[in-house]
Design a protein around this nucleic acid. Sequence first.
RNA 1: GGUGAGGUUCCCGAGUGGCCAAAGGGAUCAGACUGUAAAUCUGACGCGCGAGCUUCGGUGGUUCGAAUCCACCCCUCACCA
Length: 433
Amino acid sequence: MSEMTLLQDLKARGLIAQTTSEEELDQHLNENSVTLYCGFDPTADSLHLGHLVPLLMLKRFQDYGHRPIALVGGATGMIGDPSFKDQERSLNTSDVVEQWSNCLKSQISRFIHFDDTEGGAILANNYDWTASIDVLSFLRDIGKHFTVNKMIAKESVRQRIEREGSGISFTEFTYQILQSYDYQYLNKAYGCSLQIGGSDQWGNITGGIDLTRRVNGTHVHGLTLPLITKADGTKFGKTEGGAVWLDANKTSPYAFYQFWLQTPDADVYRFLKFFTFMSVADIDALEQQDAVREGKPVGQSVLAREVTTLVHGEDGYVAAQRITEALFSGDLSSLDEGDYAQLSLDGLPSSVLSPEGLADTPLTTLFADVGLAASGKQVKDALQRKAVIVNGEEFGMDDNLNAPGVFNVERALFGKYFLVKLGKKKHHLFVYG
RNA sequence: GGUGAGGUUCCCGAGUGGCCAAAGGGAUCAGACUGUAAAUCUGACGCGCGAGCUUCGGUGGUUCGAAUCCACCCCUCACCA
C-alpha cells in the first residue's frame, strides 16, 4: 500500500462508485483518523458474497488507521430497504430478525478487529437506539427534517412511486429516514463522519448526510462501492445452488474455494482487486505474467486462496485445497482411509447409503435426492453421456436400475466409501452403512 | 370510476379448438475442445428409468377434445376522469 493514499488505492482497485466531494473526503481521511460506518441488514441468517466487498472495505479503512463501525440493522431489517427493489417485500417477524442479527454479528467479528480501546472498531445494532423511540418524538424530532418532495425524488424509490401497480408502502418509504437517523446518531455518539455502502445506498447515505448537518450541524461524508458485475453479464455470486454464503455451514469452504477457482479469466484480476488485500501493483504484475504464461493462468488459484483464507481461515483453505487436489487430480489411490473420513468433514457433500431399498431406487432418483443434480432428468443425461463415475468406474444408463450392483460393498473403498462424480465438477461421497 | 391492451413453463417471448409439454431467445446442466477459463459446436432443459402424470392468472362452463371459445372473479399495463 506504501505511498498511496487510501483513496488512491481504492480508486486503483475500482472500488469507488460515488463519493461526496472527493477533495474534501481525501483531505479528511489524510488528516484524521476517521470513524466510518457501513450497515448490514439482516435479510438472512448469513452474509453472502455481496456483503463481502463492503465488509472488506471497512477493513481497508481500519488498516489505514481509521475506525470502522459495523452496523447490524436490527431495526432497519424490520422495515426493509426499498432501494431499487421492484417489489414490496414481506416482513420478517422480530424474532427472526433478532436471530439473524446475531448471526451477522458473529460473522462480521471475524473480519474486523474489534476491541474495547478508545479507537477500536465498534459493532453496533441500530435496534438499540431505534426501538425505544416513540412515534411522536420520531415524527417531531426526526421526521420534521425531511421533506416528502425530496424523499420522493430519490432515484432509488422513483420506480416504485412512478409506476402504477408496484407501489410502495409507507413502511418502506420511511426506511430512508431510519437509515438517515442512524448516521446522525452515530455521528453524535462516536463522531462518525463517513458512511460507506453499495451503490444502491447512495440515496440513503445522502439522506443521512443532510440530517446530520441539520441536527448536529456537522459536515459528514459518503462513499459508495460499485456493483460487482461479471464480464459476461450474468449475475455475480450465484452458483447452481443459489447464493454463495460466508457461513461455512451454508457454503462449505470447499464449495467456496471452488467458486473462486472457476472465475473466468475476464474477471479474475478485477476480482483480485475487489476481494483481496494484494497490492494493485502485485495484481497487475500477476496479470502480465499470466498473459505470457504457457497454459493455465495462476490468477484463479491465487484469488481462491486469498479469499478462502480471508473468509474461512488458513484451515478452511487448506482443507478446501486438499479436497480439490484429491478430486481433480483423478488419482483416488492417493487418499488413505483417514482422508476419506476427512473429506466430508472438510465440506465435501456426502450422505449415508443404506443398503435397504437400494434395489428399488434408480440412480436417477438417488443422485437427484442427494442434490448431485437438480432432477432425475439431468442424471439421465449424464448417464447417457458417460459422465457418471463411481470409484473411478464409468456407469451408463444401463445401470440406472442396478444401484445394488453399482454400490456393491465389494467395490467400496476401504469397505465403505463410494465417491461419485457427475460431470467434471460435481462430487458426492456416499458412506455405506 | 370509464375505455383499451394484457396475464404462457426460471426469465423474455410466440402460440388463438386437435399435429402443444407448448416456437424462438436467455439463463442453467451435461458432452466435445480446453486450463475445473472464455468462445464455439452438440445434447438436455415441467415431473417420472419407464408406462405415464401434472401445467398456460383463478373458478366454473361449452366441446369427443381448450393455453386457445364462453361466464364470473383476481391482478397488471396504457390512456381518460
